[in-house]
Design a binder for these strands. Sequence first.
RNA 1: GCCGAUGUAGCUCAGCUGGUAGAGCAGCUGAUUUGUAAUCAGCUGGUCGGGGGUUCGAGUCCCUCCAUCGGCUCCA
Length: 639
Amino acid sequence: MISISFPDGHVREFEDGVTPLEVAASISEGLARNVLGASINDAAWDLTRPIHQDSSIVLHTWDSSEGKATFWHSSAHLLAEALEALYPGVQFGIGPAIDQGFYYDVDLGDHSLSVDELPKIEAKMKELAQHKSVFTRQAVSKSEAIRFFTDKGDDYKLELIDELEDGTITFYQQGNFTDLCRGPHLPDTSKIKAIKLMSVAGAYWRGDEKRKQMTRIYGVTFPKQKMLTEHLALLEEARKRDHRKLGTELELFMFSEKVGAGLPIWLPKGTALRTRLEDYLKDEQLRRGYKPVITPHIGKKDLYVTSGHYEKYGEDSFQPIQTPRENEEFFLKPMNCPHHCEVFGHKPRSYRDLPVRIAEFGTVYRYEQSGELHGLTRVRSFTVDDAHIFCTPDQLKDEFLDVLDLTMHVIKKLSFENFTAQVSLRDPENKSKYIGSDENWEKAEAMIQEAAAEVGLDTVVELGEAAFYGPKLDFMVKDALGRSWQLGTIQVDYNLPERFQLEYIGSDNEAHRPIMIHRAPFGSMERFIGVLIEHTGGKFPLWLSPEQFAILPISDQFQSYAEDVKGQLFAAGLRGYIDGRTESIGRKIRDTELKKVPYMLIVGEKEAGTGTVGVRKQGEGDQGSMPVEDFAELLKGLL
RNA sequence: GCCGAUGUAGCUCAGCUGGUAGAGCAGCUGAUUUGUAAUCAGCUGGUCGGGGGUUCGAGUCCCUCCAUCGGCUCCA
């Protein structure tokens, strides 16, 4: 007998060799039916794999991420089995579960797979799932594993095996398909009831663009058809919130083929929104002692040689602009920091003047590869709500904490509750990618983690995500389709002050090197607003909304009363317009609803006679009528 | 940049195996003066993404460039 302990603490005795599935069955029939995977002593475990020692157990159902991962990983194997049946000779890379499903990277030789073939593969998967093929786990020696895939002719698997320890290698087989795999898997394929292959994409083998590009097939599966239907409906809803679609519909911004790809053009409504966001941060920064500056959009090549940007990105930037006579070379600025370093350095600085906080909404231009461009979230020209803080080592922590406070303030103000704080450190395997001494890097990296811990911020650490001059604390937010974007960022930098030979005179009358903090709470106005559009679905908070109200006269006769109301509301500091078209009230309401103007004010005979407005809230309908001044107060209370 | 797909009026889309473009909405004009999500009628509007080719004839086929979409790689 062995004893097995459960997450709630209680312990029960079972026969030696009991399987998690049997354990589940001993609890309830329903659990046995719904369980998808298990963890034994925190290690992933197949439901049908015997347990031979005293253990702790966690049973995973669909409601847990482990349960879903097991389900989707098994689905990837099912996809592979179908592909092997339909495309003999296909070679397999990797096929993991991901956030919303799974994929498998395959090499189909000369055949280029088109989306039209997906239904056929889907059908094959369904057919194979119904065979109720059992997933069998088999430990194999490294030489056996190599022999198997050599015979099969799968170079990718051989490369993977090459990196594995002998004695740790397992195969999983279901039906006629055998794969190198760590597991775990479902007991059999029959649980996979609903299958949808989503898309086909290219993906470099092992993520290396110098290696072969494989075909990646994305799919998602569910234990019930209804869940798939709901999932697809949810995706459809998310597409409606796509900022590229809403941005066009609400006339916030546009792109023009003539102006150029990745160069957003802000339309009046988008500009109104963006300006309000900028003004809000500018005010906040003034209160916190930032000094706004304005610097040019280009800078001499030498500036970027000094900063190190030229060496790092010179080839991958927009190429220099040359003056016609002198052949001087200027680059469009890809960052504001070199300019700001010059601002700091323009006069002698005393320790008494520090910290110096130089702020600028600076527009920068970066060459992004054509395939990378994406609405407002990945563009070639964007405006950073940038500032650079130059301080003494003693001040660093406090300055960092103040920046953190400001960033959290912004995130809260815009209700981005679901962010991830990511500590982006350098890749210890590849230090040559970065400038500066190990000592400075270590100091900076330690400081960021310390400060984050101090304010109780939950962070995830990512190695290799640092900027080339320093580590970062990045705030990541997901878009409507679940893609993660970096918004706010705080970076500690010991290196640029050195490269620019920046100094201040300390109380000891000696020259010292300041430390620099780069920070941008929004990150980029473009990306921030792109993500904001998706979060709000275009229904912006009242203080940001380009129009706060629309006055809808029932007929022409009430035009002058409408003007009257508008005058009163303008006087109260609110903004809006009159829809004076000769249209039915139903029509005006519909159009205004679609424009997502927060409040509609219906004015007709009743209202004109009593000095009131009929208030209708966007998306919520009629709110009854109230005196104009009450409405003004109501709105001001909401700002 | 790479793999795959798409590109027809301002927007959403139709256009079969090649025979020289069509709808709804928007816009304009007129009528309607309207009470909480589309009043009616008429009209305008497209070098079918650009260029090249095949063909008697190309929105439909081929090449190429551009842009967009889904990914990969990259992201100071």
